[in-house]
Amino acid sequence: MQSKNNDASLEALQDIRSIMDRSARFVSLSGMSGIWAGFVALIGASIAHIMLQEPHYRQIGKANEAGPQQFDAYTLHFVMLGLGVFVVALLGAFYFTFKKAKKHSHVLWNNASRQLLIQGFFPIMAGGVFCVTFIYYGCGLFVAPACLVFYGLALISGSRHTLSDIRYLGMLDVLLGCCAIFFPGFGLYFWAAGFGILHIFYGAMMWSKYDK
């Protein structure tokens, strides 16, 4: 009789915990999403690296006499590359997360995922505005650090609504961004480390922890 009560209590507590987690946290986030985003970022950084061999591209984001820099074709190529990387990374991340949610028959659009998107959206949007204005005012060397810091802040603020590992990834990105400010000219390497290597590392870790 007593052990029957014990079992029932344990079962009730496990139920409670599972529902608390699923309702407040978006647990379907797949580690594969991170790995994908990391590889896309590394490919994007390599393309940017090759583009930067060309002298025209080296002028992007540098202050000139004429005041705020014109958005010429070269700048546009670079911004398009950045946006392209962001969209391809996001689509792939969405695909893997969609697959994981389906496998566990969890819903993708719920209170937790809504909160995650809202909390993450504001820092990302602010970061986007800052990056574009940095290029506009000829302070291109701040773009990579700003990307890392704002993205890291977005992860920290969103992490309350998803797997907690995301918080540490966010903190590392913020720290890396802060370091990057002191190494002008190496922005792309910091960017590749933060968005490429850290994503792959954390993605693989989360994959083996939750998805395997």
Binding site: D15, I16, I19, M20, S23, V107, N111
Partner: peptide
């Protein structure tokens, strides 16, 4: 009841939850 426990568990960690979210959760 499991369902009532489910409802309370979801509400204790969220400011508010709508009917459809509760339905799919539980």
């Amino acid at each position: 009841s499991r369902i009532r426990i489910g409802i309370m568990s979801a509400l204790i960690v969220n400011d508010n939850v709508n009917f459809n979210d509760l339905k799919s959760l539980i």
